[in-house]
Design a protein around this nucleic acid. Structure first.
Lengths: 337, 337
DNA sequence: TTGTACGCGTTATCAT
DNA sequence: ATGATAACGCGTACAA
């Protein structure tokens, strides 16, 4: 075989010897310093290629006091994280950017459990910064992380401070627009299934819902928490139906919850959108895999992930990126409303 | 506040000074050596607590030549990875174990793209081992990774070698049992929607399907590739229906694909299980969020993740764990068949 | 432009 | 049981 994978990894010293220069010069070309003569540059490059030299991360970060690692923090109760296409898109966006940099992503599924090592790890400089994809009011370990390293949040942090950096979508506007669409279509008994009200996204979308209703002089038919999960959405839908008079339309704050609601509606023999119209939120793949296909508020999750990574990278590079970035949502009309 | 997060991290040297011992002794208690006097032990422990000392990872791995990091490798085209509850469960299992060790998980979404840095990173010793959750025949970078560090595969590797370690479910038996159940229920025109035949799981489940049919002296009504995705499952279902005579039962190799098939069936006015019975595979959350709820082969994905982590940890600890671990599947009867 | 020399925080070897 | 001391591989003043 052409590559001997079992060879000991080449060191900068060996490269220097092979190229006939000093360690420093090799270090310079590796780190892209300009003050290197073309001749030396060429020699070093060749030596690096021949020896398959790759800098040792540990040595490098010990010397430079940088780890070139970024923590991807996922609160544990958000482990529905995986399995939720919304997060899938965010992570893909983050990865797309990080992958182009020379940083590495460390995955932490963190909890408030005292035995959890996440904050300890992050606090001792094993990582240069952190991306927190989502969190709840109760997640106190978040603060410990933010105290230790630069952080970028996905969504407005629960305890927002001026120095925070985050990327969010305009959830209030999204909730308002979705609801307004329902109103414009002539619906009057409009209910909503919300996300957890311990999460800003849950609160904000509800606020938008209420704004639109208020402006139209309408009463909310029902408000139930669906916890951003399929099962939660189904349960919430059931509670709403049990209350008696069914609404003629629903704004459901996530597609996953809408899917749950849909199955309950179907079981009850209620037709969508004929008997009850539904607008979801996310425009995740499930929106099109469900029957009828969901009318929903699209949010640019992949882009959100990219922006989060960009901002953190800027931060780590000593630049001064925007603290708050708000992305727009967009109504996608399909069959459910 | 009680914790000054901006303090410079304490070094082993400072702990030694505070405890009135040498670096070596501190290192010993940190690493759990027995040859430390109770008095010294106590003093060091107190000093560590007071100074909030946490060993520097870089220095530690530079000296010990171990990174205490494990790569979680996700082939890019498997990025449906996220969004697929099956993988969600596996990752949770992996994390559960890793989190109890003092290893860290590095996330790599890798591709065969030459610009992809994954194999480079893994090859230069930034990581002690790797867990590859899933892969295709075409993924050649896998081999480069396996050549560099100990690897544990999720599912039988496409090019299996004797020295490989992997954890798989008995997909052949699963496919056979699912199909047999359909046969036992009196179905005779049985079709299947398979996973990608570039993946062992796809191939094996199909093999089990054919085994059961052959044993019963039945012909396969149709075989279509659904690519393990919801949309792919829908498309495959459509192709099967377009062929003319509809099957009276289907074994669908993943719940996600079954969901897609279900929506097509519903659109065609075909009732499940009355007109066509369906058995899925995975018993992922979607199995219960769909109407009718799916009869499906349960596979212990969380446990599979745990085992993968355990085996890699064993490997890294110099033990000699089992090379092949096969987990059993189990039929879960619900409404769809 | 290039090289020397020191330091980064630990582990590991070897005396004691 | 304990403590010097030498690596570990690299970055980076500083000097040349």
């Amino acid at each position: 075989m052409s590559i001997d994978a079992t060879r000991a990894a080449a060191t900068i010293e060996e490269v220097a010897a092979a190229a006939g220069v000093s360690r420093s010069t090799v270090s310079r070309v590796v780190n892209g310093s300009t003050s290197v003569s073309p001749a030396a540059l060429e020699a070093v490059r060749r030596a690096i290629a021949e020896l398959h030299y790759v800098p040792n991360r540990a040595a490098r970060s010990l010397a430079s006091r940088q780890t070139h690692a970024i923590a991807l923090v996922v609160p544990e109760d958000t482990s529905r994280f995986f399995g939720d296409p919304f997060f899938a898109a965010i992570v893909s966006g983050i990865n797309a950017r990080i992958n182009k940099s020379d940083f590495v992503l460390n995955l932490f599924i963190a909890s408030d459990d005292p035995g959890d090592k996440t904050s300890t790890y992050l606090a001792n400089g094993s990582v240069d910064g952190a991306i927190i994809v989502s969190h709840h009011t109760s997640d106190t370990f978040i603060d410990r992380i933010a105290a230790a390293v630069p952080v970028v949040y996905g969504g407005r942090p629960v305890r927002e401070r001026d120095r925070d950096h985050y990327v969010d979508v305009d959830n209030v506007a999204g909730g308002r627009d979705a609801t307004q669409y329902l109103i414009d279509r002539g619906h009057r008994r409009i209910a909503t299934i919300t996300g957890p009200l311990t999460m800003p996204a849950g609160v904000d979308r509800l606020e938008g819902f209420r704004d639109a209703l208020a402006e139209a002089g309408l009463q909310e038919a029902a408000v139930e928490d669906g916890g951003f999960t399929t099962d939660g959405g189904a349960a919430a839908m059931r509670r709403i139906l049990d209350k008696g008079e069914a609404p003629d339309a629903l704004f459901i704050a996530s597609d996953l919850m809408a899917r749950g609601a849909l199955s309950v509606l179907a079981a009850e023999g209620l037709r969508v959108p004929h008997d009850v119209a539904i607008v979801g939120f996310d425009d995740s793949p499930v929106a099109r895999s469900v029957l009828p296909e969901l009318t929903t508020m699209r949010q640019p999750s992949f882009a959100q992930g990219e922006m989060m990574a960009d901002i953190l990278l800027d931060l780590l590079a000593g630049r001064d990126p925007q603290h708050v970035t708000i992305l727009n949502t967009e109504l996608v009309v399909r069959e459910s409303a």
